[in-house]
């Protein structure tokens, strides 16, 4: 599956989306722009963290769309994901084995690093590996919290950069999220206290 096909499938999941920087945001903007999409234009590595922060503050489903190179910069995120486990959050890692936005330099998943096992080892209970858009859509609409590793082919669609500025992207996403806020409450980590 190409990244564009994966993103088109994820655009069909009702809810809010956090989209990783570089070509994932460019392709999503091109294929299925919506105010429910928060496009990252910087801060590589933080798609999952932004997704956790949003998911803890809203009721509806949040799909955070990360990449293998990006999530390898922030592996602690799997531990945080497992610990706070927002039930409305699906973390999708589009794994093409390369840094696709900077010239296809190989990442560690191309030489054997298994993100599904890293997530499971960090304590994530629901981990799926998918290889086609239909299975991806099913996993992303299924029960959360879940980590979904989607194996995709390298390669980018020929689409321009997202033309919107930061505050514009913030405002339209926040307005969409505002109607779905939940009342703040103390959040305790799962499991035993130390």
């Amino acid at each position: 599956m190409r990244r564009l096909a994966a993103l088109r499938a994820l655009a069909g999941v009702p809810g809010l989306r956090v989209v990783n920087l570089g070509y994932p945001s460019r392709e999503m903007y091109h294929a299925a722009d919506a105010p429910e999409n928060f496009y990252m234009l910087g801060s590589m590595g933080l798609a999952s963290s932004i997704g956790i922060g949003v998911a803890l503050g809203v009721r509806e489903r949040v799909v955070a769309i990360d990449g293998d190179g990006s999530v390898l910069m922030n592996l602690g995120t799997f531990a945080t994901f497992a610990r706070y486990a927002p039930p409305n959050l699906i973390l999708v890692v589009l794994d093409n084995g390369v840094h696709g936005s900077t010239g296809d330099q190989p990442t560690a998943t191309s030489s054997g690093a298994r993100l599904d096992r890293i997530a499971a080892g960090a304590g994530v209970r629901r981990v799926r590996v998918v290889r086609d858009p239909r299975a991806l859509l099913r996993a992303a609409t299924g029960r959360g919290p879940a980590v979904v590793v989607a194996r995709i082919e390298p390669g980018n669609a020929d689409v321009p950069v997202v033309p919107l500025d930061g505050p514009t992207l913030r405002d339209r996403f926040r307005a969409r999220a505002a109607s779905r806020r939940r009342v703040p409450r103390p959040t305790a980590p799962r499991g035993r206290s130390r």
Partner: peptide, 26 residues
């Protein structure tokens, strides 16, 4: 005081968590 305090594994991750919270209106 009843405010959720999330343990981040690294400060950069904490900035991401806080950005998400701000996007959710907090």
């Amino acid at each position: 005081n009843g405010i959720a305090v999330i343990d981040a594994t690294r400060e950069e991750e904490g900035v991401g968590l806080c950005a998400g919270a701000a996007l959710a209106g907090r």
